[in-house]
Design a binder for these strands. Sequence first.
RNA 1: GCCCGUGUAGCUCAGUUGGCCAGAGCAGGCGCCUUGUAAGCGUCAGGUCGUCGGUUCGAAUCCGACCUCGGGCUCCA
Length: 648
Amino acid sequence: MADSITLTLPDGSQRALPLGSTGATLAASIGSGLARAAVAVVVDGAETDLTAPLPDGAAVAVVTTDTEDGRHILRHSTAHVLAQAVLDLFPGAKFAIGPPIENGFYYDFELPDATTFSEDDLVRIDTRMRAIIKADQPFIREEHTQGEGIELFADQPYKREIIERVDAAEGAVGGVVSAHRNSEHFVDLCRGPHVPSTGRLGHFKLQKVAGAYWRGDENRPMLQRIYGTAWESKAALEAHLTMLEEAEKRDHRRLGLELDLFHFPPEIGGGLPVFHPKGGLIRKLMEDYSRAEHQRAGYEFVYTPHLARSTLFEKSGHLDWYADGMYPPMEMEGATYYPKPMNCPMHILIYQSRQRSYRELPLRLFEFGTVYRFERSGVLHGLTRVRGITQDDSHIFCARDQLADELASLLQFVMKVLRTFGLTDFEAELATRPEKFVGVAEEWDQATAALADALERAGIPYVVAEGEGAFYAPKIDVHVRDAIGRRWQMSTLQVDFQLPQLFDLEYTSAENVRERPYMIHRALFGSVERFFGILTEHYAGAFPTWLSPVQVRVLAVRDDHEDYAASVVERLAAVGLRVDRIEADDKLGNRIRRAKLEKIPWVLVVGDDDVAGDTVGVNGREGDVERGVPVAAFIERMGDQTAAPVSP
RNA sequence: GCCCGUGUAGCUCAGUUGGCCAGAGCAGGCGCCUUGUAAGCGUCAGGUCGUCGGUUCGAAUCCGACCUCGGGCUCCA
């Protein structure tokens, strides 16, 4: 046996090290900067502690803290420190699981006597955590048999349950139970890897306490969850906290109130918003734009009612599969009616109202259809989670050989519309056949291939979500990133074989035989209410000129300029601008300030010079003040901003 | 639905050993000021202190129930 090992690095180069070398040795041999930033190594594809000896001939990559994988390890280790602190401070506490999550981590606990954490407790825990980090305790990996593991965690029922279930993701696999020990008193069941020692941590913040069911199951105990965030540097932590503050400032619920756009009257009920005149105007502009694009793209407009007999939803399968999401039934004249949770059955009835020919396909039916879904009170959230949902809903009926092209053009259409709203960063998920599915596997494969092909053609980066499709169809979910990098699920496209079959849909083919059409469900905004909320946050309430309720405000410097100001208003209104005027009964500075707070895109100030020269002073929402702009020139400049962007 | 938190004027918030008529700023009405680019001055009005019940001589304040809203769990547009 040789006394050295040879390792292959990610760039393909080879490096020889003494036998028994670890990831830490390797990183140090490459450079001291790398050694400082290293948190783990990937050995032949498996993340491993820096302290583990490396096998000869392995392919090894060093994981550093400035990568998503590195931060994951950092956060996971910070979660362990949190658990150690809580167990120190709350004798008798039981700890459950504590994984890293996007931007942070959490840990679930059960406190003795069903007590809960308070805000003050968080401060104490934070202090204790910092002491543990300062002590620079090593993370030492241990391996035990299942029996030993159960003994080790004898007084920790949640850990025992994990070991008994042999859950590979949580440190128990193939009869081997792995754990990481920080001190004589603290050891946590865990697959690892971890940073070498707690001294590597420190840029974290505990954020909030929340209740969470054990295993997410509402029939099991409610645990106390502590959320935190952790980063590789002080700067990264502060950048994240700043982003959170920015997100708070953009909260559409707050802006909705400040800008007088909408509210949720308790008298109406949770999750049921009313749109005020300004919000209503923005929504109308969104909808008008959407309708115009749909008309151009060959859609036909339909309208359907809000209620239907139970028999319709029995036939469509909604009462079997979706009853939990539906409002309770109403009895009328011996029949039972339900508020509709989806528009599809009604669009199908329109398709079925007469015989269809292949010449009509693809038939694209579009409706802003308001549906009602019962959402439990705890899940409602502003406009992004409501009970009355207006979907920009479409059902496309097409022949089998039209499916691929239709999906491809549909995706292009989706992106074109979303881009108009300044959303340009797309990602998609392709959800494939779940274990429990209806229909024929061959059909699923064809539809899935068509969806994948559409994604390829559209050039949207996507991931495959294996087995995440609906029971009746594979689907594409389109996500976008907003102005501050948050990801939102937006559009959804589903290929449906089930409903055409349940309703026995047909068309007559060119060969004069009856064929069954395919059906595509798609919502583009998803829900108009939700999209409105997301847009409000994306723009931080500063809607672009074409969407602004008031596009231009004219302010006279003194009241003897009012006549001229009024004439400017008249001329701007004549070319279709939404313009108003606030009289000079307050200092100009204050009127400007109010206009800015209302986020009006253009403020025009007119005084002596302007009356004399037929000009205006232009104060844009962002940018400098410009004096002496001729009115005609301003109108010219507004040009294409007065209306929704027109597609080529 | 469950856990935690919250609820005082349209908005943001003061108001604890339980004690005279519950306060401020902003917003709103009225008046003065006649204003050149993010807060001029004065004045008036506005509150069943979330709701209901209890304790007390006395409750915004203490107790209970319910409701709203917020953060989570779960689900999803």
